[in-house]
Amino acid sequence: MLLGSTKKNRQGTKTMKIAVISGKGGTGKTYFSTSLAMSLEDVDFFDLDVEEPNGYIFIKPVISDEIQYNLLVPEIDEDRCTFCKKCADACAYNALSILPQLKKALFFPELCHSCGVCSFVCPVDKALIEVEKGIGIIRKGKFSKGNFIEGKLNIGEPSGVPLISGIMKDHLDPERTAIIDSPPGTSCPVVESIKKADYVIIVTEPTPFGLSDMKLVVEIVKDLGKKTGVVINKDRGDSKITEEFLRKSEIPIIFRIPYSLEIQRSYSKGIPLISTVPGIEQKLKRLYEDISNG
């Protein structure tokens, strides 16, 4: 979705989908995105950091629904199977091993992408059926400013991508503003979480590590053709290396959170940024308006 296609909500302000990413973990994505959501009206907050969702600590939602998220995986009935190997040959991920001599069918769930090609090519009735397998939980609830939606991947699951894309498909309301707290890193889950975003906020810390990983996410954001701006967290006024990179890359610095002991103390108690720094709520509101006005 491009900026030009954004809708307006009841109050007549534009509704935007804003994803918050970082590259490096621990730069303050969740700390920033929760307060951004809490400073707005009529907003949906998505915690898509599905391996360790912790936005709820700051948002403090009242959870009303817990939905198990399932994928379809094959189940082979070895009494019906003729061990023709069509399924294993068709599987692009080598998730099936058929051993005709031993009359054995082995399935490796961690390689399966739930594409369904195995059941499509199986020539035998009911030899290979698709069954549901839970990979995580979607928790839904409310907070003072709107809806809270969180994905939590089961421990041991190899990829958060299906859960993230499932949440975006089923729960992202095109008519409403959404703030999306993305996973850290630069891999597929991050890409999945920003696909539907109109704007991507990169939260960085002014350290060489923060810069190195930010460079990687900048490439992703550029490849996906998204508008972007950077929030510098833990800013001590000596963020030169970060600022210089951003100036050269023509990426604006849209917000700064100062380095302060008071913020750290408050953060460690689960108190959000907007309840810690006086006047910051107005600044976040204005930031949202600036972003939605292009």
């Binding site: 294993a88 991920y93 080598n94 998730a95 091993s97 058929i98 051993l99 082995l106 490796f108 390689l111």
Partner: peptide
């Protein structure tokens, strides 16, 4: 992915 599985098969 899963090359070892194929080879073992």
């Amino acid at each position: 992915h899963g090359v070892g599985i194929k080879t073992a098969g």
